[in-house]
Design a protein around this nucleic acid. Sequence first.
RNA 1: GCCGGUGUGGCGGAAUUGGUAGACGCGCGGGAUUCAAAAUCCCGUUUCCUUUAGGAAGUGUCGGUUCGAUUCCGACCACCGGCACCA
Length: 848
Amino acid sequence: MTTYDHSTSETKWQSAWANGETFKAGLQGDKKKKAYVLEMFPYPSGRIHMGHVRNYAMGDVIARYRLSNGYDVLHPMGWDAFGMPAENAAMANNTQPKTWTYENIAAMREQMQRLGFALDWDREFATCDPEYYGQQQKIFLEFWKAGLIYRKSSKVNWDPVDHTVLANEQVIDGRGWRSNALVETRELTQWFFKITDYAEDLLDGLDGLDRWPNKVKMMQANWIGRSEGLQFHFAFADDTPCETAENIEVYTTRPDTLFGASFVALAPDHPIVQHLGQSNPELRAFSDKCARLGTSEEALERAEKEGIDTGLRVKHPFIEGKTLPVWTANFVLMSYGTGAIFACPAGDQRDLDFARKYDLPVVAVVCPQDKSPDEAEISETAYTGPGTIINSGFLNGLDVETAISKAIAAIEDAGQGKRTINYRLRDWGVSRQRYWGCPIPAVHCDKCGVVPVKAKDLPIILPDEVSFDQPGNPLERDIDWKTTLCPSCGGDAVRETDTLDTFVDSSWYFARFCSPRDGAPVDLKASKHYLPVDQYIGGVEHAVLHLLYARFFTRAMKDCGLLDIEGREPFAGLFTQGMVTHQTFKNEAGEWLQPDLVERKGEAWFEKGNGKPVVAGAIEKMSKSKLNTVDPKDIIARFGADVARWFVLSDSPPERDVEWTSAGVEGANRLVQRVWTCACATAERTGTKDVGEDLLRLTHKTIKAVGEDVEGFRFNRAIARLYDLLNALRKESENNNTAPIMRIFTQLMAPFAPHLAESCWEKLGGQGLVATAAWPTFDPALCEDEEIMIPVQINGKRRGEFSAPRGLSKDDAEKLALANEGAIRALNGLTVRKVIIVPDRIVNIVAN
RNA sequence: GCCGGUGUGGCGGAAUUGGUAGACGCGCGGGAUUCAAAAUCCCGUUUCCUUUAGGAAGUGUCGGUUCGAUUCCGACCACCGGCACCA
């Protein structure tokens, strides 16, 4: 018997799998019974980290389990390879994004292959391959033809020093991350996908996603934010006409509170405010200040509520002669509804805070059930619940629901507005003023305007070499690349230099995996066979955007005839795993530091080597940009791939976040050695007697439980059960033939520690590869014990227990409980009032 | 700020979803083996009080429903994710 040598074993079995095309889709299992298992593909940052190992190990367990259960498994891998980090690296290291990206991909592929994942590498691609983004450009043209694409002006964060557009992430406290200049907002004409056309469809589709976590469905529903309400207009008061607008269009979900309206508020970037600002410096200053908050909704919402009176007044629609002041306020978003609201401070906390701050009137209009109208007055807390309408003319006495309908009817009758369904979801802006992305296949011609590139001229390939010595988008300065002929008139024209949001790349890659080398974006037969993805696995951080965009793409592609799929949903099953987090560190200059360059002395942290003080930051998900990643290479080198895989799955429930610690890796390594020792000892045993009934029962229970745990993503529990079975196996008498049980153990362990399992399988005389061996079955009769322990409680506290056969009658259970020694002791001096018996579970005696 | 989530021993966590709280692993303590160590094996390990045995408290905090609550309800606290140009 030798110690288990992981590196020999890994090399051996990885090449055996590769040579046997074990994980190639379409070659194993039953073609009619397919399983498409997919983990969200990684951004090629250069090195994999423990978060990747956890993510891909989970998918691998599922893929291997399905393979053992006779499925034709599609389990591919690729690279989400466009995006900003490549440009940043190019600037920092004087290299090209393309070079940097493909080198990273090579390094990460190598690391992943060492982990022995059951992947079909023949289907690999990167989104920055022209073969991929060329197909994406075809999709773009089809969407354009279908009316799903348009251009409009919208805001970007502008760095006035670097002359470049900044991502929200690059705006820190209102300043550019590199230049430290105060960020401005600029209007640019940009490309949009009409995702709002699918708002209702995307919302409805959530109902059918029974294998999605509720939290994700809820977040998506809230994001789409369907609301029913009233869109109507306020006419300007006679003494304050407005030059640019006839009236103010507002949207409200609470028209029942119109009588409580105390002001109208416009977004700071509302056209009316912009216009007034031209002649009102105070107003302009306010708009400018709001613009400096950047474009992120978070920044806008967290800013202190402020506003300014525009001086305009509007007529109240229901109260003759009453007018309301028109303010502009930073909590009103131009992007939602009409960019204008009416405020009823009594019924909305933000409106109330604002009204108190600027001394605007507050009139209670909804009286809660448990209060009388004179108690309904509002002080510091707005009332948003149900109740009876008061102080509201013709709506008085109605409940909220009825009042809403009646108010809408009144406005509609007066021709001032109509019932409207509104969505929070906005159209998807896909323009990026960057080089390292998929070029938008459009041409600007002075004569013909914006013209689509002809499909036969695709792909529009990015230039390989660009210069980053000036800020801004290198494509704009690349005259050779930019200059072209108009596809329509043949005259001189220029290419569109905006590239696509990288979310576009990841919105259909799962479909491309079905036929990765096809001349069309997706081969319809292949997509019909393999889609939808049966099990999609990725971080919760993608719960809204990526998943919503992919759902939109699936619908749009299907409607354009680019995709064939049963139903309209790309991911039938979704599992959102928790993140692997780690403390972040910064030096005095505010630069991120790697955890392994930092050491702790007492309560404080210092840089290793130079001893400079270090600021310990938040514990956040591992990400290359914050340098708080932990590379699995040391663990793999010391203990092997199986230990790394086993360890990341063994302790924490997959959906929970884990703070990274290597404490316990030795435990996983001990297990691997113990399994190998046990397998070797088993193979050498000569005992021929059947194993004991306890072990047999435990084995069947374990087969059942591990299967259920794997299907339910409870890998930590499955592993705990494997420990149990192994412990029992090791205690079994030398005289018994444990080989059949050890072979079952090996199979159950295989999805978690596949190399070790192959070695054990071979040692134990298993046929072929354990990877493709049929999953063991269990006998339900052996999964339940005949004798069970039943606890006895007195007044809810456990005082004893007795052993009894399963299915014991209630009468017998009561007798045995009352005769129980512990129960008798506890009942001393008490009178039994009631006995509660849950069969095969518990007996609770109530006494006093 | 808004939306979603999480909270159980020294640590990661388990608990058949309202029925014995702490499975399994890590760590720690004790022992065996060894010239010694490593490795391995065995035993113990929620806290506190009494020590064969027993009792009390205990699942972020406070309160509620129930014969019985980690599980259901209400309020609060802490942390994490997302917020449309990070991916």
